[in-house]
Amino acid sequence: MKRLTPMEIFNKDFKQSIRGYDIDEVNEFLDLVIKSYEDVLQENEYLKEQLRQLKKSGTGRQAAVADRTGQYDEIIHDILARLDRLEQMMRR
Rank of each mutant, 00 (worst) to 15 (best):
E43C: 09
Q42A: 12
D78Y: 12
R92E: 13
K48H: 04
F10A: 15
Y37D: 02
D73G: 12
A63R: 13
I18C: 03
E45V: 00
R19F: 14
M90N: 14
R3G: 01
K56Y: 04
Y46P: 00
A66S: 09
I18G: 01
S17R: 05
R19C: 13
E74L: 14
K56N: 12
R19P: 00
T5I: 04
I23V: 14
M7P: 02
E25Q: 01
K15Y: 05
D22R: 06
Q50C: 11
G20P: 06
D84W: 07
E38F: 01
Q88H: 10
S36G: 13
K2R: 12
Q62M: 11
D67H: 10
I18L: 11
F29R: 05
L80E: 14
A81Q: 13
P6R: 02
D67K: 10
E43P: 00
R19E: 12
G70F: 02
K48G: 03
K35D: 12
L54M: 08
E74A: 07
F14E: 15
G60H: 05
L32A: 06
P6V: 04
D13G: 01
E45D: 15
L54H: 04
Q50V: 02
A64P: 01
N27K: 14
K56H: 07
L41H: 02
L4H: 14
